[in-house]
Design a protein around this nucleic acid. Structure first.
Length: 149
DNA sequence: GTTCTAACA
DNA sequence: TGTTAGCA
């Protein structure tokens, strides 16, 4: 992450590199509610992949595989067989890749806007004269603001 | 405490 | 798939 913005005395990331975000098998297991046994089994079948740092022999998962595991779990809960869940996941792989890219590219940091926390979502126009910000109103709903640079 | 592989009262 | 054993 690009830690170069200061806000409220705390350093916050101005970009997020999901490619470098990794989780251990136990973390993935708790977050997605799939057993480590299942995760290892799916990997043995070649449905998912893990990174194995040579430092130790334990598995780590990048965001891509985290989403893949999450997707398989989702379709299993929907009633699909494992193979069916794998097929559905593969079918929607493009959507997952798109979402991952979008999340990574759309976040440009956080700043104070009119006394409120706002997410910089990047330039609104091709001329790069306006910036789109996302905020949360008092009801917790997302609202947007366009600010001239 | 966590993860690994192998194996199954 | 769960769970346990025995390691690292």
């Amino acid at each position: 992450m690009d830690i170069n913005k200061k806000w409220g005395g705390v350093m916050i990331p101005s970009t997020v590199q999901l490619k470098k975000l990794i989780f251990k098998i136990g973390e993935v297991s708790k977050m997605i509610d799939v057993s480590p046994r299942q995760i290892r089994y799916w990997e043995s079948k070649g449905f998912i992949e893990s990174l194995r740092g040579n430092e130790n022999s334990s598995r780590v998962y990048n965001f891509h595989n985290f989403m893949k595991i999450s997707s398989i779990k989702y379709y299993l809960d929907q009633g699909y067989t494992l193979q069916g869940a794998i097929d559905q996941t593969a079918k929607h792989a493009k959507n997952m890749d798109f979402l991952r890219k979008f999340l990574e590219k759309s976040y440009h940091g956080i700043k104070q806007l009119d006394g409120k926390m706002a997410v910089n979502l990047g330039f609104f126009d091709a001329e790069k004269s306006k910036i789109l910000y996302g905020l949360l109103n008092d009801d917790g709903e997302v609202q947007y603001k366009i600010v001239k640079k």
